[in-house]
Amino acid sequence: MYCESKIWLALSLLFVANYNQYYVHAESKVPCLFIFGDSLSDSGNNNNLATNAKSNFKPYGIDFPAGPTGRFTNGRTTIDIITQFLGLENFIPAFANTSNSDILKGVNYASGSAGIRDESGGNSGAHISLGLQLENHRVIVTQIASKLGGLKKAKQYLGKCLYYVNIGSNDYLNNYFLPEYYPTSTIYTYEQYAEILIQELTLNLEALHYVGARKYVLVGLGSLGCIPLRISDGSCFQPLNSASLIFSEKLKSLVDQLNNETSINSKFIFVNSRTSAVIDAKGFTVKTVACCAFGSYGECIHDQRPCPNRREYVFWDENHTTDAWNKVIATIFYNSSYPDSTYPMNIKQFVEQNIKMESEFIKEFISQSNRLYVDE
C-alpha cells in the first residue's frame, strides 16, 4: 500500500506540474485557439494567393495597429476580439505567417472566399477550402507533437484548446446563389443543399476530433441577403436569407446531436451570427451602405479614402462588417444569455465551465492521493 500511495503522490505532482505549465502561468481562459473559416476570420492566409479575395492593402487595416494584414475589415475581426476577451496575449497568427510564431497558442487557417465545399468561392480565384485548412492543421499538429514529445501528448494538450469554426457563407454567396458559375441551385432544394453542407461539415469535425480537438464553437450564418452587395432598392434579398437560415438551424441541431454522443467525449456550442439582423443597432446610423468605395467584387478600392465616421457604419465593404460592428457581435458571442444567440451557452460560460471541471478534477485527484498517503 505504501508503494501505491507513492505512485499516487508522484502522479498527482506530475499532473499539477503539467497543469501549471499550461494554465497557471497565463491569465488566458484557454491555452490555445484554432480558427477555421472564410474572410470573416482570415488574418492573412490569402495574401500570396492568386485571388481577387485579398485585403492586404489600404484602406483595409486603417484602424488596425499593424495596418493592412489581410483582414477584411478596417480593424479587428470578430474572432480577434473574442481572442482578446479570452485573455490571449496576442492575436492568433495566420497559418501563412507561423514561421516565428508560438503555434502552441494556436493558428488561424481561415481563407477569404473559402467554403465547406471545395469549389465554393473558386470564382474569385485560389483559396483554402475547409478540407485544405484541415490538412494545414495536421501539419501544425505534427509540429506540436514534435515540441511536446509525441502525438499522444499533443492530443492531450489540444484537447484543452478552443476550436472556432465559422464557415458556410461562400457556399451560398459564391456557389448556390451564383448560377452563372455553379449549377448547384438547379440540382438541390434549399433543404437538400443545407443537409449536404452539414454532412460535409460533420466529416471535417470528425477529422478534427481525430487529431485532438474536443471543444468547438460553431458559428451560424448571418443574414446574407442583407449585405450591401445583395441589397436591391433598400431591400434584403430574402431567398438568400431563407436558404442560409435553414443551414443555421441544422447547425444548431447538429450541436445537440454531437453533444449527446457521449462516445466522442467532445463539447460543442452554437453562436448565432444572424443576431446582427435583429439586435438594437443604436449608434450605427448607416446600416446598408459600405464605408469604403468598392470594386466589382465588393472589395475596397486600393488606397481610396474611406468614410471618416466608420464607427457609425455596420459594413466596411460590400461584404464585410466594421471593427465597431464586429465588437458588437463578439460581445454577443462571448456574453449573451439569450438561447437564440448562443446555445446551449455562451463562449465565456463554455470556457469557464471547462476550467471549473478541470479544477475540480485536480482537487479530487490530489485528495485521493493524499488520503492514500495518510492511510499509510
Rank of each mutant, 00 (worst) to 15 (best):
W316N: 03
A281S: 09
I187V: 12
S39F: 05
K327T: 12
I198W: 09
A330T: 06
N90S: 04
Q143R: 13
A281Y: 03
I7R: 08
D171E: 07
K105S: 07
L11C: 11
Y157H: 05
D340C: 00
D303H: 07
N174R: 13
T73S: 15
N56M: 06
F294I: 15
L224N: 06
L178P: 02
Y163V: 06
F57A: 13
I92M: 03
D256V: 04
S235R: 14
I332W: 01
R311E: 13
A290G: 06
T69A: 06
N56R: 10
K215T: 03
L173G: 02
D323I: 08
L178N: 12
S169N: 11
F315I: 03
L208W: 08
S244Y: 04
K267V: 14
S99A: 12
V24Q: 13
L205K: 02
T77A: 04
K267P: 02
K153L: 02
Y164H: 15
Y181L: 14
S120G: 07
I79A: 02
L218N: 01
E360S: 11
Y216I: 03
I79C: 00
D280H: 05
R274H: 10
Y338E: 12
W325C: 00
F268N: 08
R230H: 01
S369D: 06
A277S: 14
V139P: 01
K348T: 10
L134P: 09
I196H: 12
M345I: 08
S28D: 14
R230S: 04
V139C: 03
K29S: 10
A213N: 02
D303W: 02
F333M: 00
S337V: 11
P93T: 06
R310W: 03
R274F: 15
M1F: 13
L130H: 04
L201T: 00
Y2F: 12
Y2A: 13
A145P: 11
N335S: 05
G121W: 04
Y188V: 00
F177K: 10
A154H: 05
L178M: 12
M357S: 13
L372G: 13
L33D: 06
K348A: 08
W8I: 03
H320Y: 10
K267T: 15
V211E: 07
S266T: 14
T69Y: 07
A145Y: 01
S296E: 10
V271A: 01
L251E: 09
A94D: 01
D375P: 03
Y22S: 12
I196F: 10
S28L: 01
G122Q: 09
T342C: 15
I82A: 00
L218I: 06
N335Q: 07
A66S: 15
T186P: 01
G87E: 09
R274K: 11
L162Q: 05
S359K: 15
